[in-house]
């Protein structure tokens, strides 16, 4: 009996110890997140002001100015990429869920997974060849196109996953009313899963809002503000990259503050998706 309880005690201790190690490792894994956020706050907070959001950057050497051009640029780019990427992604997702296990669906699924893993710089090159070259110049169109390609697989897979959760009985109920398949899907199934689909779109937006590589030689940059969709357009990540690597103190401060704002927006998008998914789909 005594023997047993000693062994019991040892087992408990081993248990306790390994749990502690696991917790420490888990903390180590997420520690960078806290450091990043703390450091961004430290460096970026001081630069936060009204003019950061309303003014365009000043020339090198002058103090003041803001990132209004990059902020509107990012919004325009996200709008453009959603306008193209969301319908395409939804269409792919719906096609996947309709085609189920057919050969076409398998091929499409592999293609979409491959697209997810294509490095985003390569997507930028692709957009360069397909849009920048024919249009003879960097443009918001090209940047939006590149970001749309990043969005498509994310929206497609999340849409497919959400639609998989809808029981086939609901589908059959629609068919049994004498409605064609596409109407059942678009008008009766989709409204029931709109929260889930919105979640997927927000996640894709969060991902795209921080993408830099695909924009470098598509949207390029501009420091004057919005000049139309056929002109180069600034964006938060590209502007942060440019300013952070510059030697101007004011610009470097703008980069820190910009990074803080960007991270905050991405956090916010993720938070909203969290809240949406916690409510039932």
């Amino acid at each position: 009996m005594i023997e047993l309880s000693i062994r019991d005690g040892r087992r408990k201790m081993v248990n306790y110890f390994s749990l502690a190690v696991l917790c420490a490792l888990a903390f180590a894994a997420i520690a960078p997140l806290f450091f990043i956020f703390a450091y961004l706050l430290l460096r970026g907070w001081g630069g936060l002001s009204w003019s950061f959001f309303t003014e365009i950057p000043r020339p090198v050497g002058e103090s003041g100015g803001g990132m209004a051009n990059a902020i509107t640029g990012s919004l325009v780019l996200m709008g453009l990429s959603s306008a193209l990427g969301v319908p395409l992604g939804l269409a792919c997702g719906m096609a996947l869920s309709e085609l189920k296990k057919t050969r076409t669906a398998k091929a499409l699924r592999i293609a979409i997974d491959l697209l997810t893993s294509v490095p985003s710089i390569v997507i930028g090159l692709f957009a360069y060849a397909l849009v920048v070259v024919p249009l003879k110049g960097y443009s918001a169109w090209a940047g939006g196109f590149a970001l749309a390609i990043v969005m498509v697989p994310i929206v497609a897979r999340s849409t497919e996953e959400i639609l998989k959760l809808v029981p086939s009985a609901v589908h059959e109920a629609g068919l049994a009313l004498g409605l064609p398949r596409w109407k059942v899907l678009m008008r009766l199934i989709l409204p029931g899963v709109r929260t889930g689909i919105t979640t997927g779109i927000l996640l894709a937006l969060a991902r795209v809002s921080g993408e830099t590589a695909p924009l470098l030689f598509t949207a390029f940059s501009n420091s004057f503000g919005f000049r139309g969709l056929s002109s180069p357009i600034a964006s938060m990540p590209v502007q942060i990259y440019t300013y952070a690597t510059s030697h101007d103190e004011t610009w470097r401060q703008l980069a820190w503050t910009g990074a803080l704002v960007l991270v905050f927006v991405v956090f916010l998008l993720n938070l909203v998706t969290r809240i949406l998914t916690r409510r039932k789909i």
């Binding site: 809808v166 029981p167 009985a169 609901v170 059959e172 109920a173 629609g174 068919l175 049994a176 009313l177 004498g178 409605l179 008008r187 009766l188 199934i189 409204p191 029931g192 899963v193 709109r194």
Partner: peptide, 26 residues
């Protein structure tokens, strides 16, 4: 299927649609 309606073993209303919209759907 417009002439021949069907009721299934498990109730299967359209999720996300109101009572009215469920009945009006067809």
């Amino acid at each position: 299927r417009r002439r021949v309606g069907m009721v299934f073993q498990k109730p299967n209303p359209f999720p996300g649609l109101s009572i009215f919209d469920n009945v009006a759907a067809g």
